[in-house]
């Protein structure tokens, strides 16, 4: 283990490890938007898992402040395969259906503004 000799060394360790803990810590932060992806059986078979992974990767890359979680069926009786719900810090929510990578990008962009 390398010794920490400066504030910059400390910061480097912090950033490296924080990246692995981000999903744990930021959940406490209620000022962040939540992106919830429906991962019921139908969702998974329609590719919800890929969208989930994709969004986790991309929000990080683009530094979009949001917590991404999975959930069960969103909006019961709705048959659209991949469903994503965005809950804003003020409690307002929007539901997107039929989400693919392209529309996932658009959802993330909408949070950036």
């Amino acid at each position: 283990m390398a010794q920490i000799k400066t504030l910059a060394d400390l910061q480097a360790v912090k950033e490296r490890v924080y990246a692995t803990m981000k999903t744990r810590v930021e959940a406490f932060d209620k000022s962040l938007s939540q992106i919830r992806i429906a991962m019921a059986t139908s969702g998974i078979s329609a590719g919800a898992k890929e969208i989930f992974d994709y969004m986790i990767e991309k929000t990080d890359e683009r530094q979009i402040k949001a917590v991404i979680t999975q959930t069960g069926v969103i909006a019961e009786g709705n048959n659209q395969p991949v469903v994503v719900e965005v809950v804003m810090p003020d409690g307002q929510s929007k539901i997107y259906e039929n989400v693919d990578k392209k529309s996932a990008d658009a959802i993330m962009d909408s949070l950036k503004a």
């Binding site: 490296r16 692995t20 803990m21 981000k22 999903t23 744990r24 986790i56 990767e57 991404i68």
Partner: peptide
Amino acid sequence: MTKYKMHIL
């Protein structure tokens, strides 16, 4: 470095 999607505490 692994990026965990979920943590179980």
